[in-house]
Structures are given as structure tokens and as C-alpha cells.
Design a protein around this nucleic acid. Sequence first.
DNA 1: TTTAATT
Length: 363
Amino acid sequence: QIISTMETQVSNGPTSNSLPNGPPLSANGAADDSKTNLIVNYLPQNMTQEEFKSLFGSIGEIESCKLVRDKITGQSLGYGFVNYVDPNDADKAINTLNGLKLQTKTIKVSYARPSSASIRDANLYVSGLPKSMNQKEMEQLFSQYGRIITSRILVDQVTGVSRGVGFIRFDKRIEAEEAIKGLNGQKPLGASEPITVKFANNPSQKTGQALLTHLYQTTARRYTGPLHHQTQRFRLDNLLNMAYGVKSPLSLISRFSPIAIDSVTSLAGVNLTAASSSGWCIFVYNLSPEADESVLWQLFGPFGAVTNVKVIRDFTTNKCKGFGFVTMTNYEEAAMAIASLNGYRLGDRILQVSFKTSKQHKA
DNA sequence: TTTAATT
């Protein structure tokens, strides 16, 4: 049985946010928040925890709420949870906020299913679909394997025609596994080509990779002269290793990367106050007046563990004063971020990035 | 040809 579906963002018809059925059945004995706990999806990327709480707090008293964010970068993952004190307020939130348009998104508000391992990793990527197949037909094809939580067919942004690619999220992972067994490589009735069905990638991996590719291209261009092919290859390896959480020995970076050597050498001029118990403080200069914390998370997150970011603002105008600070846990990752981001072009500005010195922090 | 759905 299909409990709810979501159409593509470009076609927000009246059916795009069909109301969920009643609250899930409560588990016996366990604390029953099934009638008060909601999951909120398709939130705008830049929505903060405070804005999230404010929006849902306008309905009624909140017991707890959480905007889910990436553990490393702090970036919003575009969804969150709200647990109300009163089940009536949860119901009211669904009725009044589900389908609300926020910037380019149409948010979805529904009861959260009880959290368990069995509902994780139940999202499928489907390709090779007939262009004529619509969302409902795709759901009919997959619904024989279990309860579908969401489905989506990706469409061309201009023409609106199907790209033959879609997603199916099942209630349970085993249902998704069965659908792969039953449908991968099979031709839907009347189709001329077989479809491919597999587990979907985690979307959070994409932004890091895209940023790294961009960074590599821009930094490689800046160091055309002295760079040998071998050096470039090791630099790319290091960047990719960061993306996948693989440690690169500093000795390797130092031996093969003139950029990294520069950053290490420059340490001689850095006051040791850059390091503290909470990590390595990095000074970022030439940010635009409109810069906010999210851009710092985006820039430095791919290089490793970031524990804090701060944009320094004018007290009266609230505009960025042109600089900010980033704290990273590991020296090696901080050095790589500095080596890669110093001189990086952000919009029409060239960033200056270095370890924080006592001089720059002068009161 | 890969979208921000389980704290």
C-alpha cells in the first residue's frame, strides 16, 4: 500500500503532497510518541535550526525538535523532526504546514515512523524507465514488493519530459532488496528496454565531490608552471582521500606538493595560538558582505573535521566585515584546506586563507 | 543521467 508520494519539484500540483494516513501504530510498552512526532522533508537548504523551531513552534508547544545536519560539515540535510506535546498540534501541523512552499521547495510534513534499522537504506535508484511511464505507473510496478514511502521521476527542467530515471523509497529495506531481485534487468510490460534497479547513492556525497572537483580544477590552474604531472596526481589523490575520509600522511603531502610545503613553511610565522584544545583556528579574509556561516562550512567541510565557523559581522549593519574564522580538529586537514583555499576565487573575490596569528586577532 | 526520509 502506498502511504504517501511526492512529485518532482517542478510539478507541484494539488496531489503532490497527499496527506499521510493516520499515525503509525505504537510499539507495545515503548514510549509512544507516534502521535506527536513528525518528520519534515524537502526543507530549504539554508533553513536554520532556529527558523525550523520557530515555524513549527507557531503551531503549538514543542517537546523537542531537530534539524538534521551532516555530522562533519554541519550542513542541513534538508529534513528534520518535530515532537509536539499535544497530539492535536501534530495533527494541526500536518494539516497547515504540509505542502507549504518555502523558497523553491514544497515541504512535506508527516508522522515519523518508529526509528529502526529495518527502515534505513530502503531507497532505490531506477534507470532505463520508458519515457512514457509516469509516477503512478512506476509505483504500481514496485508496489507488489512492499509499501512505498516516496517515489519520484526526474524530469527535464525545461521540457518537463521524463528522463527515464527515478527513485522509490520502500518502508523496509528487505522490501527494497526484493524489488531489486524482482525488477532489476526486467522489462516493464510493453517496454522495449530493461530497467536497472539498485540502491540509491547517498545524496550527501555529491556536494563534497563536486566541490573537490571544482577546487582541484581551480587550484591546478593557479599552479601551472612548476607543477609536474606526478605532483598533480598526488594532489588530486590527497583531495580525494579527504573526501572519503582516508588519511594522507603529511610526509607524503610535503614531499609531493609544493603547495602543502608552502603552508608548512609558513607555519614559522604563525603564532602557536592558532592551535588550541579545540583544534586549529583558520583566518579567512576577503569574504563578501553577504557571506554567512554556511559558505564556510561548504568550503572547509570537504577537507575534514570542522568544529566551528564564524563570520565576523558589523554590529549595526549585520553585514560581514570581510573575514571569518574556521576551526578544524586535525592539523593535516587544516593545512590541506589552507593550501587549497588560499587564493581560491569565491564569486569575484580572491580569498586569503591562513592559520590565525595573534597579530590578526589583535584586540 | 543519482533526490537531501529516521533523531
